[in-house]
Write a protein that binds this DNA or RNA. Structure first.
Lengths: 120, 120
DNA sequence: TCAAAACTCAAGTGTCCACTTGACTATCAG
DNA sequence: CTGATAGTCAAGTGGACACTTGAGTTTTGA
């Protein structure tokens, strides 16, 4: 056991296309396990296993009433992944902005590189 | 060959913690393969394989000059994943809003918000 | 009361994939 | 030229994981 972080679990959960299909279905509204399994070409047991992965990653929440387990989206789960992506992209874009500023202000830093003079 | 979609490739790429570490490093700025490999506890060859996955998924872009291959973030790649998540979340939240409206109409009393102890 | 519905659980199987090893190529510095 | 640096390529290995099968449990409707 290698101590998985929340980010780890969420991205692993979303890496499988069947699980993403389940999330897509659930974002239209809650559903039972059998219902979720219907359009999928695999056994109920397999679907249950996927749902367990999704639940442990915090992407969905399930609740059993009688013999029916109802599954629904847990928005905080997806936010974990979204946040990670947005932060990386923000860093990168901020860096590009700074770089743009620097290039706009200065000229070539070293005369060694000033070989390919076409303009100026 | 099972015809992978872009979403498929991106989420698969981000599912690995080493690859996410590479993306994190690259969001501070471009780097060479050797440089990226330095802090990681694995062989150069392994890192190259990870970088190939990232490149094929569109998350990074690489360019070889002389004997050095320089890697950098390709923001459009991350956007594919981000978009998928945002869309699902939007759907779900819109649904919750509509549901809220309906409940507010049918059952006026009880302005209390939901909490999480609905068990027996 | 009983059968069907809706899961649940455990074990087994095949496949994918992260990572290594070792041999090779290309570029650069002295 | 020579050795070092930076990466490339192909094959192999072990473990994780998606999925099945089959047998069991609980709930429910007639």
């Amino acid at each position: 056991m290698v101590k998985q972080s929340a980010v780890d679990r969420v991205f692993h959960a979303l890496a499988d296309s069947t699980r993403r299909a389940l999330v897509e279905r659930l974002s239209q509204g809650p559903a039972s396990v059998t219902n979720l399994a219907k359009p999928l070409d695999m056994t109920l047991a397999a679907v249950v296993q996927h749902l367990q992965v999704l639940e442990q990653s915090g992407v969905i929440r399930t609740e059993k009433v009688g013999r029916v387990r109802t599954c629904r989206i847990e928005p905080e789960g997806l936010k974990v992944a979204e946040r990670w992506i947005v932060e990386r992209r923000a860093l990168w874009e901020r860096r590009l902005d700074r770089l743009g500023d620097i290039l706009a202000e200065e000229e070539a830093p070293k005369p060694r590189e000033a070989n390919k003079d076409k303009e100026k």
